[in-house]
Write a protein that binds this DNA or RNA. Structure first.
Lengths: 157, 157
DNA sequence: ATAGTTGCAAAAGCTTTGCAGTATG
DNA sequence: CATACTGCAAAGCTTTTGCAACTAT
């Protein structure tokens, strides 16, 4: 049974609050507002989109604070940061979500998530063989999604 | 038996030449000089480092040409482009190399290569399940390498 | 009270683009 | 000889930084 958004928002605000306390960081309204906005939205987003969205909601935040807060949220594992081949960081909320990786359509930009236990096996083996303490990973598959393939076939006929 | 650098350089220059011809692109001395420099060097590099290196070797090239040529080389599979978590593209020569992935040390920046057949299995399964034509992928593991772990233990004692 | 945070704007860093000149096919 | 390519410099974009004002503790 999936918990509703309100419950999740409460939980993450609480987790963030405890994290800030532990790290002796200040609990500013901006930080909580940004976290809340992230968890009320879906999908992947970049820093600029989040900033614009905050502005549209009449929050008075700066880009600097958005970047600052995103970094904190990444550090306490409430948000994941990705790079899907472009020079642009993409973020996504991660609390309560299963660990997953991404397939990206090079044509339409669509991002689809998937999960494969073999990724963990690879991490374990590499950590062992190469003597690394692996903290996280990034696996992106790039290609063309079904609908874009069809569109291509259509236009070439 | 590994072929020597000269042989490999000749082969890639030849491959690039044929690629340019096929695509009706011009065979300029700058393009070949850049390819040759890449294949005479090792490890990963970024566009700026390559540009500086060309300058030091008294080639008269511009950044624009470096970026332009790198894109061509990526397109004909002679060079691979990576993003190791930073907003900075890293490149590496790929001809004659086994397909591999990377482990990156978050402390010292060291990049180690590894190869695991399960990556291909994952690609096949995802292509099938999600109906994608996968063209390439990027798998990076991030962590701390053995020597950096030791250094940490040392400094905390 | 004091120092961590904020907003703003400027700067930084990587990459792309516009343009006039050059050289390839 | 037409035009793709080049160098150079400027612009573009994302992200970071400096600083004065503010505010959480």
């Amino acid at each position: 049974m999936l918990r509703d958004t309100e419950t999740i928002v409460k939980e993450v605000l609480n987790i963030f609050s405890k994290y800030l306390e532990k790290q002796s960081h200040r609990k500013t309204p901006e930080r909580f507002a940004i976290l809340e906005e992230i968890y009320r939205r879906n999908d992947h987003f970049d820093a600029e989109a989040l900033y614009i969205h905050m502005k549209n909601c009449n929050y008075r935040v700066s880009r600097a604070t958005v970047y600052n807060t995103l970094e904190l949220l990444v550090n306490c594992d409430l948000v994941k940061k990705h790079q899907f081949g472009k020079n642009l960081a993409q973020y996504e909320k991660s609390y309560g979500y299963m660990q997953h990786d991404h397939v990206i359509c090079a044509h339409c930009g669509k991002v689809v998530e998937f999960c494969d236990p073999r990724v963990q096996q690879i991490k374990n083996l590499v950590a062992d063989l190469l003597n690394f303490e692996i903290t996280h990973h990034s696996l992106n598959l790039y290609g063309i999604c079904g609908s874009c393939v069809k569109a291509e076939e259509f236009s070439s006929n």
